[in-house]
Design a protein around this nucleic acid. Sequence first.
DNA 1: TTGTATGCGTTATCAA
DNA 2: TTGATAACGCATACAA
Lengths: 342, 342
Amino acid sequence: MSGYTIKDIAKECGVGVSTVSRALNNHPDINKETKKRIMEVVEARKFSPSTTARDLKRIRSNTIAVLVKGLDNPLFHKMMDIFQLEIESKKYDFVFQRVGAKDDEISVALDMIKERKLKGIIFLGGNFTHSEEQLETISVPFVLATISPGKNVNTDIYSSVSVDDVKESYKITDYLCSIGHKRIAILLPDNGDESVGSLRLEGYKQALSKHGITVEEQLIRYSVDEGDSFSMENGYKLMRQLLSEDIYFTGVFAASDKIAVGAMKALLEAGKKIPEDVSVCGFDGLDIARYYHPTITTIVQPIDDMAGRVITQLFSLIEETEANSQITFEGKLLVGESTGPV
Amino acid sequence: MSGYTIKDIAKECGVGVSTVSRALNNHPDINKETKKRIMEVVEARKFSPSTTARDLKRIRSNTIAVLVKGLDNPLFHKMMDIFQLEIESKKYDFVFQRVGAKDDEISVALDMIKERKLKGIIFLGGNFTHSEEQLETISVPFVLATISPGKNVNTDIYSSVSVDDVKESYKITDYLCSIGHKRIAILLPDNGDESVGSLRLEGYKQALSKHGITVEEQLIRYSVDEGDSFSMENGYKLMRQLLSEDIYFTGVFAASDKIAVGAMKALLEAGKKIPEDVSVCGFDGLDIARYYHPTITTIVQPIDDMAGRVITQLFSLIEETEANSQITFEGKLLVGESTGPV
DNA sequence: TTGTATGCGTTATCAA
DNA sequence: TTGATAACGCATACAA
């Protein structure tokens, strides 16, 4: 862990610094013998070049950044493991950047592109409500993971890998309807126009409409709290409120498993039986859905496959073998113990 | 978002680059007027100096790094929010680095110190089983958060903020004993000698011994899986195994809330009643402990206070107003619905 | 108080 | 295939 520089190595090997640089970067124009000799010294001295200096000089680095918004989403942890593994196995550098809930991921990205001369970016999570102009300022290949911008954005200028939130919400709401539920509350993280929440609301409405059920505003609930709006706490509060208002409902669609957990706790506390009195379902397919008691009916997002596809897509873009595309994965309806016929 | 450099700004202002640099860094030897003029241009052009170039040049940066091991621990998320907030409010730069489960946090730290000329480091999580020699290689102030090295390490050379795992485990095991449990299983993440798991085991043993209960090896269970050993899945598997062996027990101490959740699911699935047949408790005080059904008896770690103290301590070290110290917080026994008298 | 010049460690350019 | 040298963008010693 050293103050060694490329200069020291050059001196020790009796060659010029540029030759060492060439050896380090697998440059073609170098004698195999000298390269070997240099690399031996590099190993011996445990020398590793300063990425800081590299980034300063290089036109383009070998670094791929993952910008994640909403670290507390367990879905993302597994995906990040896969990202890191895949990226490093392809001999790229991996850097991970947290984006605060209030921060703008695009300006963070722009900053990093400039600083680190990024080769590619993965945006993981966030409400990607950016305009075309903003997206176009990103000058390197990027893939949006688990998210997708509004439908009015030109599909040529971005890549994304996600489930179709509208469709999957439709699927699970449809399931509730199909087992006889007519009065279904929906618990949403926020009332943003372009958030995942709004997409899931849309699917919910479509399903109700298909079954000839009128959408009732009083059954649509938004978290009002600051902070993590997908939290159990929010689910709990929303359900308490709902119960206190004495509104009749037999089913609940929570926009995430965590919200579902909080809601179920409120129901159970209130002496309701799940699913006999109220059926509840969530969204995401987190571990907790399988380990809660009762297990939670949910939409499982195929995150392993999605993560893999994100990587494939990003490298296709980098290697220019493929153009931008939007990839949609199918979620799986996992029926648990939390739902049943009316 | 720019290719602007300090040079461009200098030219535009009709001053030298060093004057701009002085303005940017709040250097004292500068005319207020010129500084103001420069800063206006800086604002107007949205210029921000390249940290890459800065890091290369500077002896010491203004950056504090948080190295996190075990991102999937929800405790850490809240702490990280606090870290970021506090660090940035003190006008330091904040950088967040993920450390893989198999990676050595010290070498990661050493790397970053060299590259980023770090001013301080916070180590969050991990099994800090490092020797004095290793700790001493860290040349900048650092604080270990939620962890503490082995007792045989000289306390002068490191700072830490954590709960006393032995004591807290003792506390909760003692509670189980005090309500009549004599046959208490313990579910541990791993059998590492210096891990938190081993500390929690130690507290468990001490409590049993105080109550005159013999420690039985067959009631001590270690996760064997790769990956996240604190997972619900591990808890589930351990409990299934335990149940299949037909060993008699009335209490379970899981070394984390997540393990407890998995274990409880296995118990409930097997038709056991909690707490009538088996009492279960966890450790950490995660949200899920309050929202599981039944709620889980656990040790709540005062993470907000701990996070704040970590920051205070780190800045004391940086400003050299205080020497290294080990700070221990008291956990709170939160009795839930998952435990009861035999 | 300000500007000029040098160097941080590396890669890129060019000539050898 | 190599080596000297000029950048990269900035901070700083030194000169003005």
